[in-house]
């Protein structure tokens, strides 16, 4: 029976992917916060229009 070879590098790549996901998530949260504070929270789901 062949011995299963265990590689440590697979966990490293998983951590890299996790970091990349966290960065994307943090960026999305920052952009949503800026948009909500400047143009209103309703602007997250519809286009901002001028009020006459």
């Amino acid at each position: 029976m062949a011995k299963r070879k265990i590689a440590v590098s697979s966990d490293v790549y998983t951590a890299v992917l996790a970091l990349a996901f966290l960065a994307v998530l943090a960026t999305a949260v920052f952009a949503a916060y800026q948009c909500g504070t400047q143009y209103g929270w309703e602007s997250l789901f519809r286009v901002v229009t001028t009020v006459k």
């Binding site: 992917l17 990349a20 996901f21 960065a23 920052f30 952009a31 400047q38």
Partner: peptide, 26 residues
Amino acid sequence: VVLLSLFAVFLCGMVVSYVGSANNFK
């Protein structure tokens, strides 16, 4: 995996810098 991570980090940096320096048009 490595390229996707690097590209995601780069794009996130660009988005953060753009959003942080964008004017408050309202």
